[in-house]
Design a protein around this nucleic acid. Sequence first.
DNA 1: ATGTTCGTTGTTAACGTGTGCAGCTGTATG
DNA 2: CATACAGCTGCACACGTTAACAACGAACAT
Lengths: 336, 336
Amino acid sequence: MSVTIKDIAKLANVSHTTVSRALNDSPLINQETKERIQQLAANLNYTPNYSAKSLVLDRSYNLGLFFSTLHTGTSAGFLYEAVKGVNDVIQDQYNLIVRGIDDYKSFQKINRKSFDGIMVMSQSSSDQPFIEYVTERDIPLVVLNRQIDAIPVMNLIPDDLRGAFRVVEYLINQGHRDIAIIEGKENFKSTQARREGYMEAMNQYNVTVREEYKVQGNYDVESGYAAMARLLTLDLTPTAVFCCNDEMALGAIKAINEKQLSVPGDISVVGFDDQLFSAFVTPALTTVRRPIEEISREGAAKLLTFIENKQVDKETIFIRTELIIRDSVKTIAGGA
Amino acid sequence: MSVTIKDIAKLANVSHTTVSRALNDSPLINQETKERIQQLAANLNYTPNYSAKSLVLDRSYNLGLFFSTLHTGTSAGFLYEAVKGVNDVIQDQYNLIVRGIDDYKSFQKINRKSFDGIMVMSQSSSDQPFIEYVTERDIPLVVLNRQIDAIPVMNLIPDDLRGAFRVVEYLINQGHRDIAIIEGKENFKSTQARREGYMEAMNQYNVTVREEYKVQGNYDVESGYAAMARLLTLDLTPTAVFCCNDEMALGAIKAINEKQLSVPGDISVVGFDDQLFSAFVTPALTTVRRPIEEISREGAAKLLTFIENKQVDKETIFIRTELIIRDSVKTIAGGA
DNA sequence: ATGTTCGTTGTTAACGTGTGCAGCTGTATG
DNA sequence: CATACAGCTGCACACGTTAACAACGAACAT
C-alpha cells in the first residue's frame, strides 16, 4: 500500500526511529545519514500518516471555523471574507474545517482531540451554548464578530457602535434631521450596537429621534423593502434612512424607486457592511466597511499563537470600521 | 485526561474489547452488557479519539472541498452556495475542509490517509494538475462546475451552453438584433460554453454577429464596467448586452447610467448566475440561475456513495440552468 | 588503564482503537 | 454421555508514529 517509515528503514538499513529522526530534522542524528534518508523518502514519495502522528502527538492539525448557521442570516460575503482571511494565515499547516453550528445534532465530535483550535464567527446569542461547550473543554478558542460578556474569551469584534455613529454623523453634517433607522435582526448584538451608534449621534447633535422612525428589519433584503414601505406611509417621511446593513439598503432603495421617488434625490440611504456589490448598485451606496477579513485574519493569528504557547489571554479587541462615502446621500439645506 | 475505552472497561469490569463492541453496536455482545456499557460511557461523557479510529480503520472522516482559488475569480455567492450545498448532505459524520488549491505550496498533505474523498469546485484549467494528482492517488473524487475531458472523472456541471442559449434567445424574441456579449475570464471553460450558447442562438435565429460586439471581461464588476464603456464608444451601439455573469452586468449598468442612458429604456442588459443581489438591483436583473447549490449537493451525495461502495463510476452530469426573467430587458419593435 | 563524555543508533513502549482467534459456558443434538 | 454448536468474552496484536532509555564505539581526561 502506501510507504511508511518502516519501509524506508528497511531500505536504508537503519531502524525506523532513525528514519523518524531524519524526517523531523532531529539534532540527534548524523548529518549524512539524515540527508541520505531524506533523499530516499523523497524518491519513494513518502507522505506521513497524519492519523498516526495525531495519535501520538496529541494534535489533530484541524482548525474549526464555525458560523452560527449557514442557512439564513449569514450573507455570502460574510462567509467569503471570513474563509479568505483565515486561509491567508494558516498556510498549509492546518486543515480548515468550515461548518454551521446548527449542522451538528450533538457536539460529540467537537473535542480537544479533533480540534487544535476553534474560531467561532458568531452572529447571534444562539451559539452561546456552543461557545460555553468549547470553553469547558479547554479547546483554544477565539470568538469573532459578536461581543461575548457572559464568559471570558478571546474576542475580536468590529467597532459597530462607532461605525454607526460616524455614518449618522455624516448624514447630520449633510443637513439631514429627519433620519430613520431600519434595524437588524432582533437580539443580534450588532443590531443593538448600531442602534446605539445612531442614538448617540442623534443625541450628541441634538437631533430629535422620532419613535416612528425606528423600524425593525432582520438583515435580509425583503425586510429592508418592507420596512421602507412602512416608512413611506408616514405623514412626514424621513429625508434619510440609516439601514443597518447593505442588503436592507438594497431593499429600501427598491421600495423608494417603486414609489417613483429617487435616491438620493428625494431620500438619502446609507448602509452598513460594504458588501461587494455596494459599490456598483445605482446609486453607489454610502456605507460602513466592516472589517471581517481583518478580523478573521487577526483571529486566526491569535489562535495559532494560543495553540503554540498553550496559553490564552482573554481580551476584547475592537477592529476599526471605516466610513465609505459614495453617491447615495444628498447634501441639503444647512449641510456642509 | 480524557476518558478512553480502557477506563470504561475497568469501571465495567470487562475488557476494552467488549467496550469497543458495545459502542460500535456489534452483534457479538450480550444485549444487557451492551446497554450497561453504553449508559456508562454516556455518563462519563466519553468521546472516541478519532485519530486512533482513523489509524486503525484507515478512514480520516475528512472531506475536502477545494476551490481553484479563494483570492480572485471566486465570487462570494459561489463559495456560499457550494459550502451550503455540501453541508446539507454530509451531516455531522464528516469534517468538511474548505481550501483554495493555490493555498498549498505542495500537495504533500493531500493523500488517501488524510482525505476520504475530495470535491473540486473547479473554475479554471489551472487546477488540472491538482485533479490529476488526486486521481493518481485513487482518492474518491468529484469535480464540480467545470467540464473535464482530459481524464475520466465524476463530473457535475451546469448546462451553461443551454442557459446562455436561452437567455440570448429570449433577447431575440423580445425583438433585439444588435446584441453584444461581454465575455468572462479567458480560458475558463464556462466563458467558452456561454460564448457558444450566444453564438448558437444568434446563428439559429439568423442574427448577424458583429465582431466588435464581442468584448472581453474577466468576471469582475470593474471589467464589466470597462467593457461596457468600450461598447458605448461604438458608432452603432447595441440594443442589448449579454453579460457572462451578474457582477459584470452590474458594472455594465453603471457604465450605461453614467452616460445618462437608462436600462432597459435605452439598452437592455442580461446576466448569468443569479447572484443574491440580482433581484434587488434597479432594474432587477434578468439572468440565468446557475444551480451551484444543487451541483454541490448532488456532488456530495455522489461522493459519499463512492466512499461507501469503494467504487467510482465516472460520468458527466449536466445540471439544468434556469432562465430568470425580471425587469432589465425591454421589448422592442418586432418583439413578442 | 580506567572512567567519563559525546555522538549516534537501536530497543521498546506508548498513543487509543478495532479484530482474528482462542477459550469458556451452557444448551441442543446425536 | 459425548459431541457439536451457539453465544459471549478476553487475549494479543495491529495500525504508523514519537520518545524515553539503553547501548555502543570513539574520543578524551584523569
